[in-house]
């Protein structure tokens, strides 16, 4: 009797409400700002852009925005934050199976992937990594900002190393994030909030099934 569904007009699924989209935008903006103003220190051909410390000011501005994200979540989407954190750190056997087949998924093939909930295992892993590494980069960043004078040469080098390696991990995660967004045409979810139901089913069938069969969760295109 699945024909009923199939005969119905194509539908869109509510992927992200307004609050998480705002939060994501703030996070994305601040991270890009931080990345650019940080990377110019490492890449000597453009390091002259750091002259005079203007980039340092922008970097600190970015840092404030970056650290604002958890607070934003507390204000505008406490439940979503809780859910996101809980999900990111809990993996069932489907998740484990999914991770085993990650290379397929990486190459754009979802056919044989185990069914996934709202977040696939890769997304969970991504989010969990972002949370943990962000903690490192924030703490090392705050130390470099406020306590640099009392570090000594070794302390400075160590803190800066932690900051740099954290940045490296976050950047690689960002590259992966952008990669999957591109491969799976996932951008609309963040811009409009909705994604086509058929694509949602490919990756998050368990979640789509669990959603109530009504607006605003499922709407006609």
């Amino acid at each position: 009797m699945s024909t009923q569904v199939q005969t119905a007009p194509p539908r869109k699924i509510l992927r992200y409400r307004v609050a998480p989209r705002i939060n994501h935008a703030v996070l994305a903006t601040s991270f890009i700002l931080l990345l650019i103003t940080g990377l110019i220190l490492l890449w000597s051909p453009v390091s002259f852009l750091a002259a005079g410390g203007r980039s340092g000011v922008l970097h600190r501005l970015g840092a404030v925005l970056f650290m604002l994200v958890p607070i934003l979540y507390l204000i505008d989407d406490r439940r979503g934050a809780k859910e996101l954190l809980w999900d990111s750190f809990h993996y069932d056997k489907d998740d484990v199976a999914w991770l085993k087949h990650i290379l397929q998924y990486f190459m754009g093939r979802t056919a044989n992937m185990p069914p996934q909930g709202r977040l696939n295992a890769g997304q969970k892993f991504h989010h969990a990594s972002v949370v943990i590494v962000s903690a490192f980069i924030v703490v090392s960043g705050l130390v470099l900002w406020f306590a640099k004078g009392s570090l000594g040469a070794d302390g400075l080098a160590m803190t800066a190393t932690v900051h740099d390696i954290s940045m490296l991990i976050l950047t690689v995660l960002l590259v992966g994030h952008l990669y999957f967004t591109f491969v799976y045409k996932a951008l609309p979810g963040m811009t409009t909030g909705y994604i086509p139901e058929e694509e949602a089913r490919l990756e998050h069938s368990k979640w789509v099934d669990s959603l109530p069969d009504e607006a605003p969760y499922k709407v006609n295109e």
């Binding site: 490492l42 890449w43 990486f106 190459m107 754009g108 093939r109 979802t110 056919a111 740099d164 390696i165 940045m167 490296l168 950047t171 690689v172 590259v175 992966g176 952008l178 990669y179 591109f182 491969v183 799976y184 045409k185 058929e198 694509e199 490919l202």
Partner: peptide, 27 residues
Amino acid sequence: TLGLTSLSVIVTGIAAVIARRNHMQEL
């Protein structure tokens, strides 16, 4: 840091073309 970042960009850049085609094919 620079090296690994660049490497990840290159690898994903190449993979992206193939993977996207695969995904479109699947759709």
